[in-house]
Amino acid sequence: MNSDLMDSNDSQVTKIQKYIDRMPSLSTTVTKVLEVCNTPNASPNDLNRVISLDPVLTGQVLKLINSAYYSLPNQISSLARAIIMLGLNTVKNLALSTAIISTIGKHDSFKSLPMDDFWSHSICVGVTAKALAAQQNIPIIEREEYFVAGMLHDLGKIPLNNCFAAEYVQALQLAELEQGPLIHAEKLLVGIDHGLSGRLIGEKWQLSDTMIQSFCFHHDPASASSGNRSLVATVALANLYANIYEIGSAGDLFPKASFLLDILDIVGLTWQDLGPLYNVVCGEIDKAQIFLKVAEKDRNEN
């Protein structure tokens, strides 16, 4: 085991590892997941979209696709690829079986962070990371990985929020009081931060190294391996962008300006380059909300 993990409290690690197995998807998306997956002629676009709008579901589906169950020779990090290779029905089944878990546990899945704000933050980082990838002229086919990494970057907060709810509330309060980064308050009061917690999820789900590094190092992209540094820095920049513009919230309210300059340097962009993104990002979030709310509305009307 890695030295960071050995330094951490073993019982906390064990508690998180146990929780990961029953981690529910977000109730923000679950109604639409069930609707799409139970539609006999669900469109591949809708299936891809509804899964990708939920960071837990995306991670769980990728976990199953890359598991020994299929023993595929190469790691699959994109849902579109999975849908073509394994078929629509297989991915529908995987999503359904995962979403059903969330209907059991959704009421206590978010104890201190508001779930809808967390979801908005996640999608903002996903959409922004993908848009930043386009600005860096990353080929279209590789941009989805930026979206997924951005969407999933804060997954580590979910177990902390659930397994150590009281301490996590204190950590959120401390970060606010000090006007400092949440990750330090987490380490101080919970004893384990969301980077490490994210790594535990990534390792347990056998996600790609790129994905795990973006969970661990989006507050410190310089520590990412050279092959992943650019993507991790892009996610870090997208995360700062979401926090600065206060689009959603995952509890990190006080981004450090000096850190921003370092990341812009790694990514090779200026803050001015990010100006045109605002309308794109807000437009994408609105579209996603409309897509998800359609199901909610239909259900209420019936």
Partner: peptide
């Protein structure tokens, strides 16, 4: 309305 360029391009490549 559901068109997504990323999915379209990746779909072509993977197929």
């Amino acid at each position: 309305p559901s068109y997504d360029e990323g999915m379209d391009v990746e779909g072509e490549v993977v197929a």
